[in-house]
Simulated assay, not measured.
Amino acid sequence: MYAYIDGKLTFKCPTYVVVEAGGVGYHINISLNTYSAIGNAERCKIYTWLQVKEDSHTLYGFAEEGERRLFLHLISVSGIGAATCRMMLSSITPSEIQAAIINADVALIQRIKGIGAKSAQRIVLELQDKLKKEGPDSLISMPLHNTIKDEALSALIMLGFGKQVAEKAIDIAVKKSDHDLTVEQMIKTALRNL
C-alpha cells in the first residue's frame, strides 16, 4: 500500500522510528540494520511494508529497497513471520542472510534467536533457488538510474526467468536490432529468444 515514506525523522530508537510526512507521524518498526543506516539524519526516506491483521495495522520500514525485498522473501516462508524477519535483519546484515541462504549455511541462520534447525532448513529450501536465479546481491544492490537494458532485465526476472538466461536474451535482442529499442521492444524481442 505504501512504497515509502519520506519526511522528517521526529523520533528514533533501535526498534522503531516516527517519520512525519504531510503533517502525519508514522510509527514504523525497523531492524537494527535500518537503525544503523539512518544514522543522525533529520530527514529520511523509509521503504515500507504494511502488515494488515484483524486487530492491527503495522508498518515495517527499511533503509533500502533491497532490504525490504529480502524481508518479503523471508515472510513468504511458511512459519516465518514479520517479527522473526525483523529479528533476522537485526542479527546479521541482509547481504549475510542472502549469502547464507544461497550457500545453504543452515548453521549461520540457526544462530539467529528464534530460528531453529527446521526453520533454518525451510528458509534455505524455499528461498535458495529463488535467490540463485536472481543472482548474487540482486536483492541488496539496486541501481539508482536504470538503463533500458536494466529495466528489461528486471522485468524478465520478475516474469520468472533466470538472470543469466535473461541477460543473454537481451544481448541477442540488442545485437539483432539496427536501432535503439524501447524497454517494451527489448522485452518482446528477448522473449522470442527465450
Score class of each variant (00 low, 15 high):
Leu194Trp: 00
Ala107Asn: 10
Ile115Phe: 08
Asp55Phe: 06
Ile28His: 01
Ala120Ile: 08
Val124Arg: 08
Ala155Val: 06
Ser56Pro: 03
Ser138Asp: 15
Ser177His: 07
Gln164Lys: 11
Val18Cys: 12
Gln185Phe: 07
Leu74Asp: 02
Ala83Arg: 15
Ala104Trp: 01
Val124Met: 09
Gly39Cys: 14
Lys149His: 15
Asp55Trp: 04
Cys44Ala: 11
Ser138Thr: 12
Glu167Trp: 01
Lys118Leu: 05
Gln121Ile: 08
Ala41Phe: 02
Ser95Asp: 13
Val77Thr: 09
Leu127Phe: 11
Lys130Thr: 13
Leu127Pro: 03
Leu108Val: 12
Ser138Pro: 10
Val183Glu: 15
Asn29Cys: 06
Ile187Gly: 08
Tyr26His: 14
Ile5Ser: 03
Ile187Ala: 07
Lys163Leu: 11
Val17Thr: 13
Cys44Glu: 02
Gln110Ala: 11
Ala37Lys: 13
Lys168Cys: 07
Leu32Asn: 13
Val19Met: 04
Gly114Tyr: 12
Ile46Asp: 00
Leu144Thr: 11
Ala41Gln: 11
His57Gln: 15
Glu134Cys: 07
Asn40Thr: 15
Ala21His: 05
Thr182Gln: 12
Lys132Asp: 13
Ile28Thr: 00
Leu156Trp: 07
Glu151Trp: 06
Glu126Thr: 09
Glu67Lys: 00
Ser36Cys: 14
Ala152Leu: 01
Leu131Lys: 03
Lys118Thr: 04
Tyr60Glu: 08
Leu144Ala: 13
Ile109Asn: 04
Glu96Gly: 01
Met186Phe: 14
Ala173Ser: 13
Gly23Val: 14
Ile38Glu: 11
Ile172Leu: 13
Phe71Asp: 00
Ala63Glu: 00
Ala100Gln: 05
Leu181Gln: 14
Val183Phe: 11
Leu156Thr: 02
Asp171Lys: 10
Gln51Thr: 10
Lys8Gly: 00
Ile5Asn: 03
Asp129Glu: 15
Ile187Ser: 07
Met88Pro: 02
Ala169Gly: 08
Leu72Trp: 01
Tyr60Ser: 06
Ile92Trp: 01
Gly79Gln: 09
